[in-house]
């Protein structure tokens, strides 16, 4: 009886926007210190718009154009992907590599959501959206551990370029394993259901 998904999106993004804005202004609202956090707040804003469209679609189904919920979700993913593309500049190659893989997962979510506008009842597209969201989320978590591992005290020192190249290959492999894990998770839930 309630648009649960839309309400959860609005609540989670409201927390995200507040946390990002507070992090961007650590010394008060006069001095912006971390513009990157404003970038995160902007990404949350588009997911909040998507949640709002979900709620409006639930309560006013005849007023909201058909497929606008999928469009707003696709827009949110596209903006998120574009914002992370900006992360690619002026970064070490390893950070770029992690973010390129993340952007691939984000744009996969965006493309599937766009296709759902024209194929709203396609079960395959619903699973594709779930699958790409699973990879997106799990790689997001993995990125946090690769780039900002709280257990790592000192920055990693590379003994040779070969070690560095091997680390990049490991990152690609880990992404592929995340994809495999997400697909197996999807299959298990389908079978249990």
């Amino acid at each position: 009886g309630l648009p649960v998904e839309g309400i959860i999106k609005l609540l989670v993004t409201a927390i995200g926007i507040l946390a990002s804005v507070v992090a961007a202004y650590p010394s008060g609202f006069g001095q912006l210190q971390h513009v990157g956090d404003i970038l995160y707040a902007t990404v949350y804003l588009f997911f909040a718009i998507s949640g709002l469209v979900d709620v409006l679609t639930f309560y006013c189904p005849y007023a909201i154009p058909y497929g606008l919920n999928h469009f707003s979700l696709a827009l949110a993913f596209t903006i998120e992907g574009l914002m992370f593309c900006l992360h690619l500049q002026r970064q070490a190659f390893m950070e770029q590599h992690v973010h390129v893989l993340l952007v691939c997962a984000i744009f996969a979510c965006a493309v599937v959501s766009l296709i759902e506008i024209v194929l709203p009842y396609s079960l395959l597209m619903k699973f594709a959206r779930a699958f790409s969201s699973l990879i997106h989320g799990s790689w997001y978590i993995q990125s946090g551990f690769i780039l900002y591992d709280p257990n790592r005290v000192t920055p990693t020192q590379w003994n040779s370029s070969q070690d560095y190249n091997n680390a990049l290959i490991w990152i690609s492999l880990t992404f592929a394993w995340h994809a495999a894990g997400a697909f197996i998770c999807l299959l298990v839930i389908i079978l249990i259901s």
Binding site: G16, Y40, K126, S132, G137, G144, D149, C185, S193
Partner: peptide
């Protein structure tokens, strides 16, 4: 670190919900 892990967990949760929605 939390800026990556928390949104990631949210996307995983949505992915699981969408999988359940599609399979039931």
């Amino acid at each position: 670190f939390a800026g990556y892990v928390l949104p990631g967990a949210a996307f995983v949760a949505f992915g699981l919900k969408w999988t359940l929605d599609a399979s039931t």
